[in-house]
């Protein structure tokens, strides 16, 4: 949490400037004054247990959650004024959902949708070539014309990343990209994201567990009950868990436990 006062004046190094974010879906406040400031080139994890507000924070940052208070600026433009935001500089990878059982669509068709813009509702010249390059970057070029429902969950997730990459974004926002994905695929994601970050892309990842993405991430923002409780170095894996890093798996509802697992694992 680096910003606690007014929204800073937009500058070329500020990618996300969010102040006092409050969201209320009618069943109590989900976010209770979240501040977040992300500079260009950072790689940041938004961590928290179920119900902590991390996904809502991400949605609020992208203008998809109704703010009851607070302000978000992306690249200096207020999200409330959607027309002013340079959405083409932002690549969003939604949380993985099983492929819809509706109509078939190929991987390349899904990636092509990433090339559309607010004022360009049709594909530019050479669109398929760009889409194939993006699929190649995530190791899916050979499955470009396969139907999405024939791909595994991890492969579908790679296609979602390619759809975000095809517009060569300056900011990549990923919502739980490795949830339910096997370890080799997680490692592949980590490689792709590390390479993008090395090339200057700002990466914000919403995570339940850090897992294989640890080497990529420089900074962790931990949410609890709709508030930021930590902003800084990545939390260490909890020593009392035998398995891989499970430091944030406890459901976050009701009153906080007397000895929060989350804070115990913080540095």
């Amino acid at each position: 949490m680096r910003v606690t006062g007014d929204v800073p004046a937009p500058d070329s190094g500020t990618v996300i400037a969010a102040t006092g974010l409050e969201v209320d879906y009618g069943r109590g406040r989900v976010l209770r004054g979240v501040d977040l400031h992300v500079s260009a080139g950072e790689s940041l994890a938004l961590l928290g247990a179920n119900g902590s507000g991390k996904s809502t924070t991400m949605r609020a940052l992208l203008g998809m959650a109704p703010l009851t208070a607070g302000d978000v600026r992306l690249f200096g433009a207020p999200v409330r004024d959607s027309g002013a935001v340079p959405w083409h500089r932002i690549g969003y990878v939604p949380q993985h959902r099983p492929a819809p059982t509706g109509l078939p669509a190929t991987a390349v068709e899904v990636v092509l949708t990433g090339l559309l813009q607010r004022r360009r509702l049709w594909l530019p010249r050479g669109a398929r070539g760009h889409a194939l390059e993006a699929l190649d970057a995530v190791g899916m070029a050979d499955r470009a014309d396969r139907a999405m429902h024939e791909l595994s969950g991890g492969q579908q997730q790679r296609v979602s990343i390619a759809r975000a990459l095809v517009r060569t974004p300056d900011l990549l926002v990923l919502d739980e990209p490795v949830a339910g994905v096997d370890t080799p695929t997680q490692q592949a994601f980590a490689r792709v994201l590390t390479e993008l970050h090395a090339n200057g892309t700002t990466v914000v990842v919403v995570l339940h567990e850090i897992g294989e993405l640890r080497s990529l991430l420089q900074r962790a923002v931990v949410l609890r009950h709709g508030r930021v409780v930590h902003d800084g170095a990545l939390p260490e894996p909890a020593p009392d868990h035998a398995g891989p890093e499970h430091e944030h798996v406890h459901a976050d509802h009701g009153e906080p436990p007397t000895e929060p697992t989350l804070q115990r694992s913080l540095p």
């Binding site: 959607s82 939604p94 819809p100 899904v110 949708t113 559309l116 607010r118």
Partner: peptide, 14 residues
């Protein structure tokens, strides 16, 4: 795009 994944379409500014 809006039929397949409206959330992504919204994040593209469509």
């Amino acid at each position: 795009a809006v039929s397949h994944d409206p959330e992504f379409a919204r994040s593209s500014g469509l």
